[in-house]
Amino acid sequence: MSESLAITKLSDLANPTRFLGLASRVLPWLSAVTAILFAAGLYLSFAGEGDYQQGLTVRIMYVHVPAAWLSMMCYTVMALSAIGTLVWRHPLADVAHKTAAPLGAAFTLIALATGSLWGKPMWGTWWVWDARLTSVFVLFLMYLGLIALNRAMDDPGKAARLCAILILVGFVNIPIIKFSVDWWNTLHQPASVIRMGGSSIDGSFLRPLLVMALAFTMLFFTLHIAAMRNEIWRRRVSAQRRMAARMAGDKPGLTTEMST
């Protein structure tokens, strides 16, 4: 009895109209929390001293690492949504993975650009085709491909199912990115925060890094909820336009009325 009640409540929450109501309530709070976290994170990033080897370039880590984490987290969110599309055929799942793709592409672009800008003074080169850099570049191309595919098809349901299959196939790249530094000999350093035996980074660098990571994560969820709300509105606009066109076809006088 209580289980069916929980399922009913969950499906109520996943209803697009209820989602819109929830989004309008939580978005101002999420935006405020994101702004506060960024203010705190940026203050901590620039208040700290430089590393004894890297000097002040260690500050690039506070934008590069959170963006790299988010590039993978965003794809994981898309993979979970893809399961929602293929298993439950839930319309909100389609909306979720469609709107997450441009956000993931943007965070991956930040990770690639800042990584390159960190690599030049530290490694002496902007780019190498090592396993970590190449797999992240492949992730960026996958995001672009999914965006293009989703927009190339007129039927949103068909586009969502096709994209969901591709997202799940492409998910194989996420563990490759994560473990590439362990499986292959790379110029990129191995994991130093999320690793067995705990973080190897000093607390004075770890604190601003974690605050910035939290800020970027909140930015992602704020933008994702807002973009999902926009997509639901977009689908409502096209549905209402189709309805208007049908009504205009049924009643010839309505065309003139609507055009005014």
């Binding site: 002040l56 370039t57 500050r59 690039i60 934008v63 590069h64 963006a67 441009p102 956000l103 943007a106 672009l109 930040i110 650009a113 800042t114 800008l117 960190w118 030049k120 003074p121 930015l219 933008l223 807002a226 973009a227 926009n230």
Partner: peptide
């Protein structure tokens, strides 16, 4: 390198926020 990194991250983030808004 630090200014460029923060500049690019800020610019891309602002473009995303602007696009969604």
């Amino acid at each position: 390198y630090i200014a460029m990194s923060y500049g690019i991250a800020g610019l891309v983030s602002l473009c995303l926020i602007g696009w969604v808004w």
